[in-house]
């Protein structure tokens, strides 16, 4: 356990400044009220989602029309009776909040408290601070998701007694990594905003504004624009409708939450074989059977790449602005 802790939080035997900062940041997060609040929020939604899925699990796994009915543990994560959204839908809402909560005041609060200049007067590289903040927060998010998922698996094992398939475990672990990347995107966005804006409140509000825009308004706007710009789908040929739908979908996919839910759906529902519209010809002859883990991974690869790219862009922006910033107050 100690070795594992060292691996994640201290790295080498004599910790360098980077690991010292990671440890301090991690400690700060864990003790902070905002993390505790987020933790409780996520814990409650997790328990709620698990309660709903556990009470429906018997019905779902005996539904032989569903090709995924053999995957009990994936069903635990994806089953809902429409009274509550499933856990991964919750994460697509709460993940951004978690990322924003952990990052929105990363740099500007240090600057306002006068700790930034004191810290940078130590023999540390400037980028180490940024990287440490990102790494510490992401590690905590990873540990949080991993422990939730492991709790779920444990509970599932106790309640159902069904042994787990290796493919299921891989899918679930990939889902955890995906969720980390998703939260990582919002984390790096909010860190970038915390570099750009002087006040923590401004950066928090801006980050939340961006989040709200993508969750609430973005789809409305895309629909509206597409309807005014493109012809009415009722007057189109079937193959044109496919193109039409693809255009709408590619615009939707600019929103990180769309990428995340697409990828999560594919990973957690092995029978999902395409994320775009399929024509009848493409469907013809396809046996409704679950895909292998590798094939599902191939399907979501563009989504994962997109999320990683967005994260890297935000982080690079934060880095660029922070390295050029005058640090005096």
């Amino acid at each position: 356990m100690n070795r594992l802790f060292n691996l994640f939080f201290t790295g080498a035997a004599v910790p360098g400044p980077f690991w010292v900062m990671v440890r301090k940041e991690g400690g700060d997060h864990i003790r902070s009220w905002r993390f505790i609040v987020m933790l409780l929020l996520i814990l409650f939604t997790f328990l709620g989602a698990m309660h709903v899925s556990l009470s429906n699990i018997r019905r779902v796994v005996t539904d032989f029309n569903d090709p995924d009915h053999v995957f009990v543990y994936l069903k635990l994560l994806t089953t809902s009776d429409n009274s509550l959204p499933t856990f991964y839908i919750f994460i697509s809402f709460l993940g951004p909040l978690l990322g924003i909560a952990l990052g929105f005041d990363a740099i500007n609060s240090e600057k306002n408290n006068g700790t930034l200049v004191r810290l940078l007067a130590q023999p540390v590289y400037r980028d180490n601070l940024l990287l440490a903040k990102f790494y510490a927060a992401l590690t905590i998010v990873g540990v949080l998701f991993l422990s939730l998922v492991l709790l779920m698996i444990g509970a599932g094992l106790l309640i159902t007694g069904v042994p787990m398939e290796a493919a299921e475990l891989f899918r679930i672990l990939t889902f955890v990594v995906l969720s980390m990347i998703y939260v990582g995107f919002w984390l790096s966005l909010s860190i970038a905003l915390s570099v750009l804006f002087k006040h923590a409140a401004t950066s928090a509000l801006t980050a939340i504004g961006i989040w709200l825009f993508f969750t609430v308004f973005y789809q409305l706007i895309v629909n509206m624009v597409v309807r005014t710009v493109l012809p009415d789908p009722a007057s189109l040929q079937p193959e044109q409708v496919v193109i039409y739908n693809n255009i709408i979908l590619s615009w939707f996919r600019l929103a990180p939450s769309q990428l995340y839910t697409d990828a999560a759906t594919t990973l957690l529902m092995p029978s999902v074989r395409s994320l775009g519209p399929l024509t009848m010809e493409q469907m013809a002859g396809a046996i409704p059977a679950p895909l292998s883990f590798r094939e599902s991974l191939m399907v979501v690869w563009p989504q994962v790449t997109g999320l990683v790219a967005a994260t890297v862009v935000c982080f690079a922006g934060a880095y660029y602005f922070f390295m050029r910033r005058e640090i005096r107050t």
Binding site: D28, R31, S32, N113, G114, T115, L116, V117, R118, A121, Q122, P123, V124, T329
Partner: peptide, 16 residues
Amino acid sequence: RRKVGYLPDSAGFYDN
């Protein structure tokens, strides 16, 4: 910075 200590004019500390 390994050899020089600097006390800024308004040194801040982590209040928590």
